[in-house]
Design a protein around this nucleic acid. Structure first.
Lengths: 219, 219, 219, 219
DNA sequence: GATGAATGAGCGTTCATTCAT
DNA sequence: AATGAATGAACGCTCATTCAT
């Protein structure tokens, strides 16, 4: 049975690019399965069945399951990078840029839980097998934020601090919101959007130089 | 009992209470394995081998793997509760109490990553089987913080806000720091303690009423 | 936990003979489990749990699971014997006696499926371990019927035949009805009672002397 | 394929069709084990060992143990159907047709005890998982008999009766003979063939119109 | 480029049974 | 008379992977 005759990931998209490579189909199905059944139940045979190919075929495109997942992480890293870059460009002041990036980050985490899970939640023992060279690429995403922070410090909008530490702090806060929300651990009585909103505002506020940060609201 | 003649979980502790029950040994070994190999590789046989017993024996003390893990979660919840309660009692002002609790929370997460993982990181599909009655107990931990926040609001130290929303915000931020650090995703050039410090301070700062929050530093 | 404090097989009976032996309780529970969960799921621990004793205790009264089941078979054999004897005594003509016994046999099979299953349905590999001496006792049940048949032959009501062969024939027919009915393989549109009725009548009719029953058709 | 180098199910048959598929070998071995050790001890590993393959391999041909057994039941149903159809066609009068079918039925049960066990003896709890659509096919076997009975009634050879009830009665009687014989519960002093013979004759005789069969006794 | 066939290792779990107490 | 502790063997099943074609 071939791809075209079986239930494909997204028939609409299929007719569009019709000649989507098998590699692409594998990755897409893997992603799909990650959201529906979770990493623990993501298996080669699982993926293969879904796309109507034999499990063996996957090995033509990926050396191992690790390799496949790493490819997915790669995609996730790129996608997030894109979103952050766009957010960064969408505003001019360091504050606005940072806030835009925060919102983009959280949006990415919430909308693409599959990517987010393998990128940032999977057990470290696993992530350690992630090729070192790709780590650097992943780290760039943090550096975009760090740059906006640095700019904020340079222009005295943000309080003086080690920008990478600050970036990690920002990251932590956003990461916490994303993971708690998507693991459904937050009480239903809490409105997710309010939580996200509050988090993004505080992240920026917490970086403001003390003088500025608080004088304003009291006015 | 063969316990003493085999590689035990922690020889030091063993000589201490010598007559540690097998149930205890199982829980401890499970915890140990959670840190070393992660939940995905935590198996009954794994645990059994580690303590030199047959896998079957575990079933003398736990109905199922679920049961075993739930028992661990329970312990974690209690342990965290204890730490938070102590922290809450260790200070008098709402601010100080909250900060103490933040530090206690992070300390717990960092020092007891096994507990933390099954309590707050494990895939929700799993956690859903956690008995409802115990959920309430788990939620109490958030409520201790919410209470301190409420007190702060009442005494005008904290800006007026929905205390549960604020508590969840605090929680998110701490959770982010804990998980990123213990999944070793934070660059080694960042000093963990600095990150934790910064996070705890910001958490409290972000709750201060705008007027007060900023007046001080500018002084 | 002791018998009295736990869910017993039949509380009503319990208060009656209060001091029912554990051996009795084991047998009763085993029977009960045979009907509810079937032989495949009848386990020592299962029984033990049900009566609130430890599985080990069963071994105080029965050498092995085989032994226990054999004891049950014994009871079944006795019970059936009793019913057949009563039926035999309830009528005077050989025909009436036989028919009464047929009805008693089927009734036993339907009302006591647990006994019936282990007595007559369990895989032969198992039954082979049944002590030889007890076989003889079991065979007696067939002999009661054979005797009525012999009486019928002697008084010319039944056609001349080898009585044991005839008895086995009768037995087969009844056995077929019982097993098909209690394994729920008979279409629901068939009324069980009608089927049983018809079977019992035919069984007797088929033994009638050819002169009476069959001579005619040839004419 | 290692098949040829290992102890095969039936070397004679093997040399015949040499290229017997593994699927076939699995089914045959399963059947063989059913007769030798019974369903209770029929396990995937058991089958696999017998044919010199790994247990995993079975899953290449059958989704589950259920699936495997259902496939066997299917085969049995078909085989029996074939035999009954042939028997039905082998004679012309309803009586002769019915008797031929009775003999065919019993012969099937005795010669193919494995099939017979899973088709008609296995615990109902199991059989309930048998796909509904296949039930209909199984029921056809009874309907062939019912048809001959109906024909007999129409031509006044058989006494007027509900044909399905009569068919079930016939079935019960045959079933009883088959199961008692193949479970080796019948005394060795009884000649199986005589028993079968007698049963088949009686089955037909019991259906004959009362006028013919019973008028006499009134004489 | 794709597959069918096959597997070893492992999983959670159940079971009858033993033994020291 | 009764038990708690313990186990080896087995069960159905899933998984990532290999290899010949």
């Amino acid at each position: 049975m071939r791809l075209s005759s079986v239930n494909t990931v997204n028939p609409a998209e299929m007719s569009e690019k019709e000649e989507k490579s098998l590699r692409r189909a594998i990755l897409d199905t893997a992603r799909q399965l990650l959201t529906t059944v979770g990493y623990a139940r993501l298996s080669m045979r699982n993926i293969a069945n879904e796309i109507g190919y034999s499990a063996t075929s996957i090995y033509l495109y990926f050396e191992s399951k690790d390799d496949l997942v790493h490819a997915l992480i790669d995609e996730g890293v790129d996608l997030l990078h894109e979103r952050l870059t766009q957010a960064d460009a969408s505003a001019s002041t360091p504050e606005a840029r940072l806030e835009a990036m925060c919102r983009a980050y959280v949006a990415f985490g919430i909308e693409r839980p599959e990517y987010y899970e393998i990128m940032y939640v999977l057990h470290p023992e696993y992530i350690k097998r992630y090729p070192t060279e790709k780590y650097r690429k992943a780290r760039r995403n943090l550096e975009i934020m760090a740059r906006a922070i640095q700019d904020g410090i340079d222009s005295d909008v943000f309080r003086d601090a080690e920008p990478m530490l600050a970036a990690n702090l920002v990251w932590s806060q956003l990461h916490g919101v994303v993971t708690l929300l998507s693991s459904e651990r937050v009480d239903k009585r809490i409105d997710p959007d309010q939580l996200i909103d509050a988090a993004c505002q505080h992240v920026v506020a917490s970086l403001r130089s003390w003088g500025q940060a608080v004088a304003e609201p009291s006015r």
